[in-house]
Simulated assay, not measured.
Amino acid sequence: MSPSPAASTPAANHGEPTSPDVAPKPASWAYAEDFAVEGDAAAQARVEAEPLGVEPLSRGTVSTLTFLARTVQAKAVVEIGTGTGQSGLALFAGMQPDGILTSVDLEADHQRQARKAFSSTGIPSQRFRLIAGDALTVLPKLSDGAYDLVLVAGDTLEYADYVQQGLRLLRHGGLLLMTHALWHDRVADGSDDDDETLAVRSALEAVAENEDLVATLLPVGDGLLAAVKR
């Protein structure tokens, strides 16, 4: 028997949850978020984020970044949005020992803090390139298909453009990640049409509709999109 239209159309699952009874209870969610131990440098990077106007990632998001970087044995990584080094530390924890992180951010102050965070854990300077500049100016200068993992953060209004660039940069089998993919619970609210929510939704739709990607949306922290390039 052929599947019903609702079962075969991805958009049909973007409204009410199909299995509300299995949604984790708040206590279980909190337990899962804090399951992995957070290192001192990562905790300090979280503390340093707020004064610089950077929204910190949850512990669950950070541990998932490490897990996924290790899963693809990442050696060449691009990060869009350096922040205070929290996500970079998470990626380094999962990358290969000789892996190199290229991180792009408009704010030099953020990158100075990230450099301090990386140095505090003994990561040698030759393992990271911190590029202060507009991501959509810098990314086109990077090589096609040369990277194992691309992390999309930074300016949510440009997420769809970052995703497009990330797909170009990834090798086959490479991993695209996008933080804040649920955008403070606003993405799931169909009545919310502010610019940032629409931009995040647009990026999610671009990934979901791309036949060259196998994607999932993980409900850790503020949401983490993960997609493998075929």
Rank of each mutant, 00 (worst) to 15 (best):
L91Q: 00
F92S: 00
G81C: 11
T102Y: 01
V77D: 01
R115Y: 08
A108V: 15
R127T: 00
D105I: 11
V78F: 10
I100K: 14
G133Y: 05
Q113W: 07
F118K: 04
A90G: 09
F92Y: 03
A132S: 15
E79T: 13
P97D: 05
V78H: 08
G88N: 03
T82A: 11
D105E: 07
G81W: 12
D109E: 15
V104T: 07
R127G: 00
S87L: 05
L101Y: 02
S125H: 01
A117Q: 11
A90P: 02
S120A: 15
F92K: 02
V78S: 07
F128N: 03
G83N: 10
G133M: 10
G94M: 02
P97V: 06
Q86E: 07
T121F: 06
S103F: 05
E79S: 12
Q126M: 13
T84F: 09
D109C: 09
H110I: 06
S87P: 04
T121M: 12
D105L: 10
K116D: 13
T102I: 06
K116L: 13
S119L: 09
G122S: 12
G85D: 05
R129S: 12
F92N: 03
G81R: 13
A93P: 00
V77W: 03
G122E: 11
I80G: 08
